[in-house]
Design a protein around this nucleic acid. Sequence first.
RNA 1: GCCGCCGUGGUGGAAUGGUAGACACGUUGGACUUAAAAUCCAAUGAGGCUUAAACCUCGUACCGGUUCGAGUCCGGUCGGCGGUACCA
Length: 870
Amino acid sequence: MSEYTPSAIEPKWQKFWKKNKTFKTDDTDTSKPKFYVLDMFPYPSSSGLHVGHPEGYTATDIIARFKRMKNYNVLHPMGWDAFGLPAEQYAVKTGQHPKETTEQNIKGFRKQLQAIGFSYDWDREVNTTDPKYYKWTQWIFLQLYKKGLAYQADVPVNWCPQLGTVLANEEVIDGKSEVGGYPVVRRPMKQWMLKITEYADRLQEDLADLDWPESIKDMQRNWIGKSEGADITFQVAGSRQTIKAFTTRPDTLFGATYMVLAPELSLVDELTVPEKRQDVKKYREEAESKSDLDRTDLNKNKTGVFTGSYAINPATGNQIPIWIADYVLAGYGSGAIMAVPGHDQRDWEFAAKYELPIIEVVEGGDITKEAFTDTSKGKMVHSANADLSLNGLEVSDAKDKMISWLELKGQGKKTITYKLRDWLFSRQRYWGEPFPIIHVSNENKALPESELPVKLPEVENFQPAETGESPLYNVPEWVNTTDPETGLPARRETNTMPQWAGSCWYYLRFIDPNYEKGPVNPEKEKYWMPVDLYVGGAEHAVLHLLYARFWHKVLYDIGVVSTKEPFQRLINQGMILGELEFTALRNEYGHFVSTKSVKPDEREQYEPVKIPDTEVEKKGDDFVIKGTDAVVDARSFKMSKSRGNVINPDLVIRQYGADALRLYEMFMGPLEQVKPWSMRGVEGVYRFLKRVWRVFIDEETDHLDADIIDVEPSREQLKVLHETIKKVTEDINENRFNTAISALMIFNNEAMKWEKKPVSIMKDFVLLLSPFAPHIAEELWEKLGGGDTLAYVAWPAFDEKYMTAEFHTYAIQINGKVRASIQVSSEKATDKDHVLGMAKQDDNIQRYLDNGNLVKEIFVPKRIVNLVVK
RNA sequence: GCCGCCGUGGUGGAAUGGUAGACACGUUGGACUUAAAAUCCAAUGAGGCUUAAACCUCGUACCGGUUCGAGUCCGGUCGGCGGUACCA
């Protein structure tokens, strides 16, 4: 006497799977084809799982379950990216050790994930903060260090006073910290750097072979920022000093009327003439103290000072002034540019402000108004000297000719430059991997591998040291040590690694998480790598995915892994937004005002009021409050605590069950797409599950419905089944889960009408449903007498022979517009004359034929007939 | 500014160049019920015509093109989203 009750079914099967280790990956039999399907592992935050997590996780779980039924050996693991700032900030506030909070959070996350019924092999769980794990993170760092890819440098770093730490460029957004949004300033500090730039070319080139979304590849290409051009050497007038400048426009050298150096360059000291020293010093100090935000704000208003020195333009032989300005960046190219104000907008603005000469060397624009930067049209002018003339050439030809000429003179060469910078790899924090480095008489020394792991010591105080150094600096008994090889006194490195470190290689650890001779078991690595499918949020398009590729390539170079790339196929799930919201604006008298009539800067004068969707109607292109003309805003927002539109997956499970949650997240729309949450949508798929239950179960007796019997299926039943198998199979293969679910709904809607339901057919349907809604599927499978678990039962196969219909429907068009539709028996469906004959007999079609001349007949077998009538 | 993606009913979304709107939500009407919930049935892009059935017009942001036929391909415009930016 009970209807569909997920709260009874779901825990039962979750316990069953756990107890029987149903999803334990047995990789001793490597003759089976393998499939490694991976989720981006979460940071176990204190707020718990968000509905965004189960989106990608459900997708991979469907694929994992599907592949198992397709007889693949499936690796589907989960772990924790557990180092990171929030736990440490919490510790600073409360004194609770990050290790404790992390453990609690992991417990919560694990429980939540298990309540959704994901088929992870929990025996392979990894945790980046476990010394057994970070031992190998440190080991990999040692390999980087030994290869000369890790070095220390005094670099102007992004220092965040509030967080008391240095941030990577990637962690700074608009001059503010990504975490917390605090201001960031630049400050020189000794830091560990990783030479990712040495791999820039390979990181760019190898993207071509990856089955990744083009947009993500483009983002990485953009980030790596390869540009081709030339390095040109300029003599300093009256000195032997030279300045190298990178340009992508060597063709415009005749138009270079001044040079600019980045204020940070040490060369500036040598070039500054005595009477300019004051100005230059002042400018450099200002530039240094400016935060990134200030620099960005001053984008349009360029500043700089003249050093008093001149360089010689190798093409014209003219002396051109050397300036310093912070619109030139020290970190890109050589930190010096040749300024061509006629053909570069930034140079043009600077030249206009400081009244420097602007010369046209490519025709086609009006350089008195702005720089002419189009390289696709226009010919070279004013570009000739005694032994070289570019005049009349196209830009691209002029480039080649200029580079050859410079090479001949020994004053330039073709060069490739990247935007990508070396990776700032140290943090002044406690909750990260310690570096396996000691300082012996001021020299860095790598610890021998036998000393790993270098464990984090216990500390009392999580505040950074006053010097800005890590809290570890305050633990003398840990910092002061001895060199294990010489016995000499030594000091430990107190910086720790950034959060990215642990996530750079975790996919390798899952392969054999307890392997003790290296980060990854080489035998198993050869079997499992690469990851066949990697699913996660697009926010990791450049950072995590670029760093992991870099480490992987280093590991490839030293023979630890056998593949050049870690992630063969990548899918980014789209963000789930909060429910659609309607917002009206109310004025001080309590009247609603049309949002259309309010300018953006006047909005603050009105009170925003959330309007329930039942109170809103569509009027023209706008939504208005029912019965009024007050236009409201209709928008979905990113889920956030402050907006109060966060959906808690636990509550969804409690009310509708895990299967409904899984189904809804997949039914919402295409995986990659950004889409708003809808509680009503959850109810929709919940209703579907209730209908499925009623198709199988007699709710009076709780037993299998009496209509489910062992009979021969009818032709119609076989047709529906096989169409469903085909659609669901193809859709899973192409990650179109929304339409796969709609196919399952169509099947169930049909089955509800059947008087007799053949067991064989109903069993196949349960199997098709099982990757999406595994709990109800297992329960129904048991009731159907299918046995223990359906997790490894063979996936149903479809056969086209069952899918032929008795009749085919043809749409009959006149001049491309459908005017009739006819049924043709299958035997005659491809008989053109027969079909055309039937079409012409249709009353409505005849009317059109009578009123014109038939000039052409288009016949598309089994689909359409188009008659062209004039 | 530059790079990339996207514009389809009241909503989420379906549509190998071949009957636009599958599937679901919502809404409306009905059945069951003392009533409600749940469930089931029917209608549901806009409009026209008709007692009705049928039929007709318009319709995938906008303008144009290719084609027997365009949501889909091509060119342009507008709007939205994401990334990125003194990168020389």
